[in-house]
Write a protein that binds this DNA or RNA. Structure first.
Length: 736
RNA sequence: GCUGCUGUAGCUCAGUGGUAGAGCACUUCCUUGGUAAGGAAGAGGUCAUGGGUUCAAGUCCCAUCAGCAGCUCCA
């Protein structure tokens, strides 16, 4: 870094021109050399892939004698927006420090939609304070003061932060930055902050800011650590962009599946049933049935075998699978065949911790007796380990069940139910399997994060040689499913193991084989995909479909996961052509993920207006008056007989009001009928999207709708132009 | 689970310690119509639950439950 010598440096611009400059030349200097207008609009610079300040001497970045490739970033570049927002975070921090006493700064990074800064201060900031903070920020911006970078040795940096009473920054220098010999700071007026940068040339570049929200957070994400106040804001180069962004947030709110689900009677969650337990109302259930029927037919035609399994299973099975007690915190407590079961578990836990004294032990033994558990082999003098074994043996003989947290162990048992030959493989078992997980209360979110969910689950048992082909077929299936519901913007995330970690089960060889098979298939599939080392499940690599909805939010939906672990644990075997026992490979896959999450996502994607094939109310018959009611009933029967989901509006109002209500209820088609239609055996069809289609014979209307259903047309997705300001919805894993 | 905010009619929400409100939806009656709101009347609330303060609590305090936002988590 400090090698910036008097020697000149070579700078190459995107158009290929190569020029020699003094080592202390900045990107701003280069811009000035081209035109003053360009210099005015320069925000930062991209130097060989690294975004830096426009006034950073470029010689500092030179390595050897290679020319530096320089790209000037203006407000048109996406990277520039990030620089702007981070600078806005500094401005916000500066404003907060002016307005409040004893502010300790934590971190202030950018997010997809803006930025935040975490503060430690005793006074509570509330949304009512936003206007005064914003006003202060605007004052700072108006000053157009520059952001000045300077670099200090660690010791000096530590001292500076200490002098500034920034204890969190001191701690960060001591811990997070312990491997850095020098660190950089940025000064803007009286405000100095430890910061990697880069920043905009001066605060005047910020043309639009808004404080968004306030929330609690924790120092370095540690929930047991210090509680901080996180202020969220956003900033843009242009007031129009800010307005568009706020519009998108409104749009997302308007599409909220919890709001639409209530409004259109799709689903509800009742506190009387329990948190995170979704009740599918008739209309929501119709959407689900359409999805299930569609997928079931597809799977049957693609060589899957349907199976069913119960909602509970013995704890021992999950001990074998390894899920219990590893994931115990996120499971519902076991169901005990005996009332003493829970007590024995707590007892065993205390023995394990060594927190049980002899008095407590006597009481527990007496209590166990009351509950009818005789423990003749339990010797108080024995080792804790021996005593726990006695308790465990009793449990094993007195069944304990788990609400099933996943379907795989059950399907493994189905595989095991008969001797298997290689001729039967691949064996593809599918089930809409309902599972229960005790998610933390704070994580629950409508249909998107629930405690009881139904996976469109299947497990493919195959030979190692078949993995590649099965994985390919699964990828094809998932593509087909997404296309059928009109989702065409997605990519695949391939999660691989972290080679330096030892948390993974299964041999190195298996992993290598699996990972290269998956990579090969994805390369051949033409799908856009990225690899994420370290993101794999402990039992195998996986591929997740990341889907972007029509307002630019990204969702994690379908998943395909390889598993070399469960077949091992359950000792699954098939007889090979060599008449010897072999271990199958298992593939978990779920194109929807869960019906709950998928439906919730679709509600938001379509803003509640489902395409005809998924719609819970496809046609509403609107009689002009009571006089046409008989004919309305007759038409409804004909439509129903043709397999359409149809209702009649027999309310007393005028047809205009009935149309309005049907439009607001997002009914796909309206069949308006009056004396004329009754006479001619026709219906006047009205399309939710295109309006009045005129009168036609009922049979013609039916054929038209059936055609639209059969081809699963997605005729309208209300798209907004929000690509510039994409917001990520919470990306949630759906592993097994 | 943690921090903060919220909980009033089926829905959306007013209501700053003194007799519980509006719009929409609903019911009944009138109206019987031709592609986005016809009219009138009526019914509907133990103000989330449980405690407390007060002459008096929807309103103030505490706890519990539930929801929302963020954090943390997500086999």
């Amino acid at each position: 870094m400090s090698s910036a010598s008097a020697a000149n440096i070579q700078i190459q611009l995107p158009d290929g021109t190569l020029a020699e400059h003094p080592a202390d030349t900045t990107a701003m200097d280069v811009a000035l050399g081209i035109s003053e207008g360009l210099a005015r609009s320069v925000i930062a610079a991209d130097v060989s892939g690294l975004v830096v300040d426009a006034d950073r001497p470029l010689g500092e970045l030179a390595e050897g004698s290679d020319p530096l490739s320089l790209r000037l970033l203006t407000s048109r570049d996406e990277a520039a927006l990030d620089v702007l927002r981070h600078s806005a975070a500094h401005v916000m921090a500066r404003a907060v420090m002016r307005l409040y006493e004893g502010v300790s700064l934590a971190f202030g990074p950018t997010t997809e939609g803006g930025f935040y800064y975490d503060f430690d201060l005793s006074e509570k900031i509330s949304e009512e304070d936003f206007s005064k903070i914003e006003a202060e920020m605007k004052r700072i911006i108006k000053e157009k003061e520059p952001f000045e970078r300077f670099v200090l040795e660690r010791d000096e940096a530590r001292k500076l932060c200490d002098d500034l009473d920034q204890d969190l920054k001191v701690e960060h220098i001591d811990t997070g930055l312990s491997d850095q010999s020098t660190v950089s700071f940025y000064r803007q007026g009286e405000f100095v902050d430890l910061c990697r940068g880069p920043h905009i040339p001066n605060a005047g570049k910020i043309k639009a800011i808004k404080m968004m929200s306030i929330a609690g957070s924790h120092w370095k994400g540690d929930t047991s650590g210090r509680q901080l106040q996180r202020l969220y804001g956003t900033a843009f180069f242009d007031k129009k962009e800010l307005k568009a962004y706020l519009g998108q947030i409104e749009e997302a709110k308007r599409r909220d599946h919890r709001v639409l689900g209530k409004q259109h009677g799709l689903f509800t969650i009742s506190p009387d049933v329990g948190q995170g337990l979704c009740l599918w109302l008739p209309k929501g259930a119709r959407v689900r049935v359409a999805l299930e029927d569609f997928l079931r037919r597809e799977l049957l035609s693609r060589g899957y075998d349907p199976v069913y399994s119960p909602h509970i299973g013995r704890v021992e099975m999950y001990e074998t699978s390894g899920h219990f007690p590893y994931y115990r915190d996120s499971q519902f407590a076991p169901l005990y065949g005996s009332e003493v079961g829970g007590m024995l578990d707590a007892w065993s836990e205390r023995l394990n911790e060594g927190t049980l004294d002899s008095d407590g032990e006597d009481k527990l033994m007496a209590a166990a007796k009351v509950f009818g558990a005789e423990l003749p082999d339990y010797k108080p003098s024995a080792s804790a380990e021996a005593k726990r074994k006695v308790l465990h043996d009793w449990q094993v003989n007195h069944e304990r069940y788990l609400l099933k947290p996943m379907n795989c162990p059950h399907h493994c048992q189905i595989f095991k139910a008969q001797p298997r030959s290689y001729r039967q493989l691949p064996l593809r078992l599918f089930e809409f399997g309902t599972v229960y997980r005790h998610e933390q209360t704070g994580e629950l979110n409508g249909m998107l994060r629930v405690r009881g969910l139904t996976q469109d689950d299947a497990h493919i048992f195959c030979t190692a040689q078949q993995v590649e082909e099965e994985f390919r077929a699964t990828i094809e299936l998932t593509k087909f499913v997404l296309q059928s519901v009109g989702l065409d913007d997605y990519r695949v995330q391939l999660s691989l193991r972290d080679p330096s970690s030892d948390k993974y089960v299964g041999s190195e060889e298996n992993w290598d084989q699996a990972e290269s098979a998956l990579r090969g298939v994805l390369q051949g599939s033409g799908l856009e995909f990225n690899e994420e080392p370290g993101e794999a499940a402990f039992y195998g690599p996986k591929a997740d479909f990341m889907v972007r909805d029509c307002i630019g939010r990204s969702w994690q939906l379908g998943t395909v996961q390889l598993d070399y672990n469960l077949p091992e644990r359950f000792k699954l075997e098939y007889n090979g052509s060599d008449n010897a026992a072999h271990r199958p490979v298992m593939i978990h896959r779920a194109p929807f993920g869960s019906l709950e999450r998928f439906t919730g996502m679709l509600i938001e994607h379509f803003a509640g207006a489902f395409p005809l094939w998924l719609s819970p109310e496809q046609v509403r018959v609107l009689p002009l008056s009571d006089k046409s009611l008989d004919y309305a009933v007759q038409v409804a029967k004909e439509l129903e007989a043709a397999g359409l989901k149809v209702t009649i509006d027999n309310s007393g109002g005028k047809v205009q009001a009935k149309i309005r209500n049907a439009q607001l209820d997002l009914v796909n088609y309206m069949a308006v009928i009056g004396p004329k239609e009754a006479e001619a055996g026709q219906v006047a069809l009205r399309d939710r999207i295109d309006g009045d289609l005129g009168s036609m014979p009922t049979a013609e209307a039916i054929a038209r709708l059936q055609q639209e259903i059969a081809t699963r047309q997605v005729r309208q997705v209300v798209k907004g132009d929000f690509s510039a300001a994409a917001v990520d919805s919470d990306a949630v894993g759906n592993e097994y």
